[in-house]
Amino acid sequence: MNDGYDLIQLKLLVNEVFGIDNINLDTVVNKLQTVSEDNDRFIVLFKTKFKIDMNTFNYYEYFDEDEFILISIFRRIFRTKKEKKSLTVEHLLSIINKGEWFEPDL
Rank of each mutant, 00 (worst) to 15 (best):
Q33A: 09
I77F: 13
E37V: 12
N58H: 07
N58P: 05
E67G: 12
K98D: 07
E90T: 07
L93W: 00
N22G: 06
D21T: 03
D6G: 02
T88A: 01
M1N: 09
N55I: 00
I52R: 03
D53F: 00
I71D: 15
I52S: 03
K49D: 12
D26H: 09
I77E: 12
I96K: 02
N30I: 07
P104E: 00
Y62E: 02
K31Q: 10
N97D: 15
I8L: 02
L25S: 06
K84I: 06
I77K: 13
N15P: 02
K47A: 07
N15H: 13
L25T: 11
N30K: 04
K81Y: 06
I20N: 03
I23L: 09
N22M: 08
N22S: 15
T48W: 13
D21H: 04
D38S: 04
N24C: 08
I77T: 10
V17D: 08
T88K: 10
L10A: 06
T56E: 09
R41K: 14
I69F: 04
L13F: 01
S86L: 01
E61H: 08
I20G: 01
L7A: 14
H91F: 01
K47W: 03
H91W: 04
L106D: 11
Q9P: 07
V17Q: 04
Y59E: 11
F46S: 05
F74I: 05
N39C: 14
F68M: 13
E37D: 15
N24V: 12
S86E: 00
T80S: 14
N22I: 07
N15G: 11
F74P: 07
M1W: 06
D66G: 04
F57T: 08
I23G: 01
F68V: 09
S36F: 13
G4P: 00
F18I: 02
Q33M: 08
E65I: 07
Y59S: 10
S72E: 14
R75H: 11
L92S: 02
V28A: 05
N15D: 11
D38R: 03
F102W: 09
L45K: 14
V14H: 02
F74Q: 04
R76Y: 11
Q9I: 07
Q33V: 03
F18Y: 12
K11A: 15
N55H: 03
F46L: 09
K82Q: 13
S86R: 00
F50R: 10
F102I: 02
V14Y: 08
D3H: 15
D105V: 06
E103Y: 03
R75V: 09
F42M: 07
Q9H: 10
F102C: 03
R76G: 05
R75W: 01
K84W: 04
K31P: 04
K84Q: 10
L7R: 12
E61N: 13
N55S: 06
S72Q: 08
E90H: 04
F42S: 05
M1Y: 08
K82N: 14
K98S: 13
F78Q: 13
V35F: 09
D6H: 11
F57L: 06
L7E: 12
Y62F: 12
K84M: 13
I23A: 05
T48P: 04
E37N: 07
